[in-house]
Design a binder for these strands. Sequence first.
RNA 1: GUCCCCUUCGUCUAGAGGCCUAGGACAUUACCCUUUCACGGUAGUAACACGGGUUCGAAUCCCGUAGGGGACGCCA
Length: 448
Amino acid sequence: MTVNVRIAPSPTGLLHIGNIRAALFNFLFARKNGGKFMLRLDDTDGTRSTPEFAAAIERDLTWLGLTWDSFGRQSDRVARYAEVLETLKVSGRVYACYETQAELDLKRKTQLGRGLPPVYDRAALKLTDADRASLEAKGRKPHWRFKLNHADVVWDDLIQGHKAYPASAISDPVLVREDGVPLYTFCSVVDDIDDKTTHIIRGEDHVTNTAVQIQIWQAITDAPPPVFAHMPLIVSANGIEMSKRLGTLSIASMRDEMEVEPMAINSLLAKLGTSEAIAPRLTLDELAAEFDFGKISHSTPKFDLEELKSLNAKILHITPFEAVRDRLAAMGMDGADKAFWNVARANIAVLSDVREWWQVVRGPVTPVVADSTFLAEAASALPSGAWNGDTWQEWTGKVKEKTGRKGKDLFMPLRLALTAHEHGPEMKFLLPMIGEKRTRDLLAGKAA
RNA sequence: GUCCCCUUCGUCUAGAGGCCUAGGACAUUACCCUUUCACGGUAGUAACACGGGUUCGAAUCCCGUAGGGGACGCCA
C-alpha cells in the first residue's frame, strides 16, 4: 500500500516547534515507507489567512528540508465541499441549526454550572418545517451540524494503541457556518478522502476531532478511514507554555535570530520524547531510517532551548566542509578552505562564530601584549621558510630554551599576541594559517 | 464539571511480576588527553509522585490521592 500523509497548517501564523514536529514525523514516516508527503493549506477562513503566512510556511518547510510531493489549498475546493454537504443533507446526517453564538454560549455556561459536559443539546433537531420557515423568514440563516452516532468510536492508534472514544461526550460538530464557510473538521475529511490519505499523524489535541472525523468519513464514503497516530504535545522547559502558544519559538526566529541549523531542529524534534538518545544527525534520511512509532512515548516531553543550542554546536562540529562551503563564501570568507573549517568548527556554537577564527587567520588582529621583551625574543627564534604543522612545536621549543619559560607562561603570551584570544583552536594549526608576515607584525605589537 | 493521555535520575527515556543492589543518552562532577578552550577518553553523583491493596515476590497488576498535558468553538 502506498503511504500518503499530509500536514495541513493554516496560514494564520508562523510555523512553530509544535507544528514542525508533526510535519517532521509525517515527512519521516513517508520517507521511510517510500510514500508521499503533501502540504495542504487550510485557508478556508479568508479573513485570517494571509498569503504572507502561506509563503512563510513554505519557506520554513523548505529551509528545514521538509519538501512536499504535492500541494493543495482548501480555498480552491469550496465547490467540492458544498457538493459533499448536499449528499449529507440527502442522507440526513447533517441538520440545520439556528442558534446564535450568544444562545450557544449561554447553553454552555448553564451546563457547566450544573456540572454537566458542555455538549450541544440537539434542540434544532426538534424544529419543524414550520419553525425553520419562520426563522428563515425572519432572516436567520442556518449553520449545519453533523449528527453523531452516539456510540464509542474505535480505532487502533499507532501511538496510543486501541482507542474507544465516547461520541456521546462530543457536541455534534458544525460543518458549515451560517455564512456558508465550511469548517476545518469537514474540509479536512473531504480532502483526506480525495487525497487518499492513508495515515494521519498529528498532536493529541486532535483526538476528539479524530472521533468526529471518523464518523464523518464513514458517512461520506465506504473507503476505510486512515490510520491515526496521536503524539503527545510538547511543552517548554519551564512547563508553563504549551506547544500551541510557543509563539516565540517560531521556526523563523530560530533561523533568523538564534542562527540554529535546520538539522539541529530536525534532530532534536525527531528524538525528543522517544526512547532514543538525542543525538546530532546530518541528514533527514538518517532520521527517517530511525523513525519508529513504537519508540514514541505517551507522556509530555519538555522542549529545552539550551538543548537545541547544544545540539546545534554538535551538528556544526561534525559538519563537513562541503556542506558549508557556499555559506562561508556568502559570509565573505572567500578563501576559507577545508583545513580552516576543520580547525575552526570545533570552537563554534553557531555558524557565524566562525568569523572570529577567520579574523584570527586573516586579520586584522590587535595583539594583546603584556611583555614586549619576551615577544621580541620569541620573534627572533621564529623559523623561516615553509611553515607546517610542526612549526609551532619547533618554534616554541627554541623559545623555551632561550627564555627558560615553560607551560602557561610560555604559551599564553604567544596565543594572546597572535590571536588576541585566551582560548581557541590549537596553535599548531593556527600558526601556519596566520603566516610568517602577520606573525612577525603581531609579535612586534602591530595590528595585522 | 465531563472526557482523553500521562507521572522512573536535573532532562529524554529503558523497564510487559523475580534477569532491577533500576540500564542508557544529554547535562553535571573528577581525572586523563589537549602545555588554552572545545573535541575525545575514563570514572562518579543522581530516579521508580504519594497511600492502600493483590502476590512468596511489585517500578511493573488493581484502587484511591496528588500533580502535569490535552479536549469540550459558527477556531485550526
